[in-house]
Nucleic acid binder design. Structure first.
Lengths: 331, 331
DNA sequence: GTGAAAGCGCTAACAT
DNA sequence: ATGTTAGCGCTTTCAC
């Protein structure tokens, strides 16, 4: 079933069929209806490969994340995919893992496939751009990064001001009288650095000094966070509140506190579904995926429409603290 | 940069270039090396649309789930995508939501795109097949369903024996002296029915009667499960153990118990990351995604290699109970 | 408003 | 072992 079949049954040329297919105005109404009817009846659908060959596009965008089983990335994809779909784009997904070489490999796979655009979710993709010569393909296809800020031609960033969020959070704790904040984090990606920077700023503004002994890098697992806090507790290291760069770490910390029969403010980040599952429910800094994702799609559409020069290269949103039981709002 | 350019710089025909591209044996080593070198130097990559047009395939499989932000589906995708990728397939993802009409729409979008195969994750996709005339396209492209069992030409199912798992779980509780099991579930999909059936079997084998008053349908949210259990507790409904069809419901139930200062066995299902985040950590029936997903990919590859007649239409795995704090193993 | 024909870049059958 | 050529199904320019 091709454009030729339709043309034949309608007694018109394939050019005409192609025109109605593409909604071209230059077709007499009667002709159009006839063609449309034939398509309907024969259940014709255009061959996407043929169209792709001619137009050099199949209207697809590639989405990359390190691990879709991570709640944060999964949520982002769940916000982006239906949105793009409703705009007529297909989404091809890649889970790269953490190896930079693999990230680049996926990027090139997407480019070889002639996707229309690429979305990178998570600031760990910043490392791809660390050495510009490693990204030869940049420029061909616009790239959109969610939650990372890099300056590069034809890449657009949509980020949350996590530095600001962590700064305010630290001040909030300081104001509540907590002077020894334990900070747990997993990686110093762009986002990771922002958080740490914000934390330090907040402490400074509160006339507190950052204590390197209380800034601890752990694996991105609940169990490792718990073990670390268990140990700190056993060593009687003095801290009176906990902030974590990820909910999953905060939950591990929380578990250690519960096991020790202790209670102190614990604040996570991402405001993922994990936060509400924790007991006590976790207060968490919400980095606004619900805003970042639609914004990313909007930016993407603008760029593809050729309005790249009118499009901001960085779009920033403000986070907010979602209060739950692990740190209650004070007036 | 096309096959023609390479041919020209090498002084050979495009057929020869195509042959080395496809690893055909009938090329002299010297020629092949020359061509390969030219490709390397000019950074040539074949146009996937042109190839797709000729072969009617771009080596893509479509994956559908209702909601990728759900931990279960996300985990499944994270297990399937890298596997398919390593076999040279691209994955296009669709999040359908729960409306059957949307599910069908996505299915047709994939078919129009000429994917090589389709994977449906989750038993709620069984409903698509309820009325055969709704699936006109079936037969064209093989369909693989994870965790659902439907009989249909050219669809292959990979399932976990959840009925068996729930049966044994119920017996286990009965043996432990728990006679009034509260069962929380969200939907009666294929999987949902299996679970309920297994529960009833387990009760019967333990000489216990199923109590419809203790089989309660709730929304698939932690908060709804918690509210329901809160209410049951307030009404002093007698139950001494809880099983839930999903971890997230078990966690809600658990929260209600904790809030009431009570403790009793709670068993979830899926053994998702949520289970370990809960406090107390949730004992959960693991439905073996780590086995189902690779198995699905294997079945898919077999079918695409034309060995469909040698491929089982249903592949079944056994679940196992992952013990944590909410129900301890008894000897 | 409609048609004829070239072209998109590849694969594969056929010829040499 | 290598070259020639006819598709694959669409879009688009150029005539009419």
């Amino acid at each position: 079933m091709t454009i030729y079949d339709i043309a034949k049954t309608c007694g018109v040329s394939i050019a005409t069929v192609s025109r109605v297919l593409n909604g071209s105005a230059k077709v007499r109404a009667a002709t159009r209806d006839k063609v449309l009817a034939a398509m309907e009846e024969q259940k014709y659908t255009p061959n996407p490969f043929a169209r792709g060959l001619g137009l050099d596009s199949m209207k697809t965008v590639g989405i990359l994340c390190t691990d879709i089983s991570d709640a944060f990335f999964a949520k982002a994809v769940s916000l982006v995919e239906p949105n793009l779909r409703s705009r007529g784009f297909d989404v091809i997904l890649g889970c790269t893992g953490n190896d930079p070489a693999d990230k680049k490999k996926y990027l090139h796979l997407f480019l070889e496939r002639h996707v229309d655009a690429i979305i990178l979710i998570g600031s760990s993709f910043g490392e791809i751009f660390d050495h510009s010569h490693m990204v030869p393909a940049t420029g061909k296809v616009p790239i959109f990064i969610i939650n990372c800020n890099v300056k590069f031609p034809n890449v657009y960033c949509v980020v949350c001001d996590e530095a600001g969020g962590f700064c305010e959070t630290a001040q909030l704790l300081a104001k509540g009288g907590y002077k020894h904040i334990l900070y747990l984090y997993d990686r110093l990606t762009y986002s990771g650095k922002q958080k740490l920077k914000g934390l330090h700023e907040g402490l400074k503004k509160s006339k507190l000094e950052a204590n390197p002994q209380l800034e601890i890098m752990v694996e991105r697992t609940m169990s490792d966070a718990k073990n670390v806090v268990d140990k700190l507790l056993a060593e009687k290291k003095p801290f009176d509140a906990i902030i974590a760069s990820e909910d999953i770490l905060a939950i591990g910390a929380q578990k250690a506190l519960v096991a020790a029969g202790l209670s102190m403010p614990v604040i996570g980040c991402n405001n993922s579904i994990l936060a509400s599952c924790s007991t006590p429910a976790l207060t968490s800094l919400d980095n606004r995926l619900e805003a970042l994702c639609p914004a990313t799609v909007n930016v993407l559409l603008q760029v593809l429409e050729g309005k790249g020069k009118m499009t901001p290269s960085v779009t920033t949103f403000e986070p907010y603290l979602c209060y739950r039981d692990s740190f209650k709002k004070t007036e």
